[in-house]
Simulated assay, not measured.
Amino acid sequence: MAIQRMDHVGIVVDDLAAATAFFVELGMELEGEAPVEGRWVDRVVGLDDVRVDIAMMRTPDGHGRLELTKFRTPTAVGAEPEIAPANTLGIRRIMFAVDDIEEVLTRLRTHGAELVGELAQYEDRYRLCYVRGPEGIIVALAEQLS
């Protein structure tokens, strides 16, 4: 049996409002917000007394989704440095294709985002950069050149 699709990526955050605002500014749409709790979620995640708030984000094309999760209980724990470098093991970034990379950078900076390295060009194909947003989340942006 094959995979049907990748449904979504989940990110645990401490400031759900800031993370949601960041991804809305990037161009994602807030699909919905909800509290989640109960024995079923305890069983799925392998923790007791889980109470979380989630915000489900959707890309404009409707194909990509991102679940932002704020743990009320048990308290979230840090598993790596607060500002992890790009070579830290684990999921490091999510890449988005954008129309105008400089315009997106300008908008994200109003939410505290900063470049990890610099905006660079790959041959005559792409302009790329890594941006660190709230919670240390790194997003990669790519603008295809004509």
Rank of each mutant, 00 (worst) to 15 (best):
L16T: 02
G46H: 06
D49G: 11
D48L: 05
A21L: 02
V45Y: 08
D49H: 15
F23T: 00
P35S: 13
R43E: 15
A17C: 02
E37P: 00
V36E: 10
V36M: 14
A21P: 00
F23P: 03
A17Q: 15
A18N: 07
M56Y: 11
E31K: 14
V44P: 01
H63L: 15
D61P: 00
P60Q: 10
E29L: 14
A34G: 08
A18F: 08
V45N: 07
M28C: 14
G46V: 11
W40V: 07
V52Y: 04
V13W: 08
I11F: 12
R65Y: 09
A34L: 13
D53H: 15
G62N: 06
T20G: 02
L30W: 04
G27D: 02
M56F: 11
G46N: 10
R51G: 01
L47D: 05
F23R: 01
T59P: 04
A21W: 00
D14M: 07
L66S: 05
D61L: 06
G64L: 04
V52G: 02
V24M: 12
L47V: 08
A18Y: 09
L66G: 03
V50Y: 08
A34N: 14
I11H: 07
V45F: 09
E29I: 13
P35V: 10
E31S: 13
P35C: 01
G32K: 11
A55R: 08
D53W: 07
L16P: 02
R65I: 00
L68D: 02
A19E: 03
L47I: 03
R51T: 07
G46R: 06
A19D: 04
P60M: 07
L66H: 01
G32L: 06
G62W: 08
G38N: 09
M56H: 04
A19R: 04
L66A: 09
D49Q: 14
A19V: 03
V52N: 04
E31I: 00
V44E: 08
E67W: 07
L16R: 02
V24S: 12
D48M: 01
D61H: 04
E25F: 00
D61F: 01
L68V: 09
R43N: 15
V24E: 15
T59G: 14
P35T: 11
E37K: 13
T59M: 09
L68W: 10
V36I: 15
V24Y: 01
D53R: 15
L30Y: 05
D61I: 04
G27H: 01
L68E: 05
G46I: 12
A34Q: 14
M57Y: 09
R58Y: 03
F23E: 01
T59D: 02
M56G: 03
D14T: 14
D61N: 14
G62M: 06
E33L: 05
E37T: 12
D42M: 05
P60F: 10
V24L: 14
D48Q: 11
F23H: 10
A18C: 00
R39D: 13
V12H: 02
W40N: 10
